[in-house]
Computed example of a mutant assay.
Amino acid sequence: MHKSDLVEAVADTADLPKDKANDVVSAILDEITNALSREDTVSLIGFGSFSQRHRAARTGRSPKTGETIEIPASNSVGFKPGKALKDAVN
């Protein structure tokens, strides 16, 4: 499912015009992004939780040359599914 498919589903479910549904979906995604950039956790009860995770710097190997390289520290997004989502998938 792509964003456009999600917008269509929201428009149909909520009986909204597609441009309003697009605004709603974009606002939700923007707020999740903003919260994660502030290192807040976003919890959607029954669906799951998004959180920022830190990856420490480490040493790796270049697959092309086999040379040792330094991989810098970075942040990534983690997702932990809620019970209702796990049950629906299984």
Rank of each mutant, 00 (worst) to 15 (best):
E70M: 06
D12W: 11
A14G: 03
T33R: 14
E70S: 13
E70D: 15
N75Q: 15
V42K: 00
D23W: 07
E8F: 07
A14E: 02
A14L: 09
I45W: 11
V77C: 06
H2M: 09
V10C: 01
S51D: 15
S76M: 14
H54I: 13
S49C: 07
S49K: 01
R58Y: 08
L29N: 04
Q52F: 09
R61C: 03
E67H: 15
S4L: 08
E39V: 12
A11Q: 00
E67C: 13
G66I: 02
Q52C: 14
V42A: 01
T33E: 07
A88N: 11
I69W: 06
K83S: 08
A11I: 05
E39G: 09
P17M: 04
R53Q: 14
R53V: 09
R58C: 05
L6I: 02
L36S: 02
I32L: 02
A11W: 01
I69E: 04
T33A: 13
D15L: 11
N75K: 15
N90G: 07
M1T: 10
T68M: 06
V10D: 00
H54E: 15
A35W: 01
V25P: 00
S43F: 10
V25H: 03
L85S: 00
G48A: 09
S43T: 15
G60W: 02
T65I: 05
A84R: 14
R38T: 14
S74T: 14
V42L: 03
D5R: 01
T59C: 07
D19L: 09
I32F: 04
A57K: 07
T65R: 01
I28R: 02
L6S: 01
I28Q: 02
V42S: 02
R61N: 07
A88D: 11
A14F: 03
D15C: 13
D12P: 10
N75P: 06
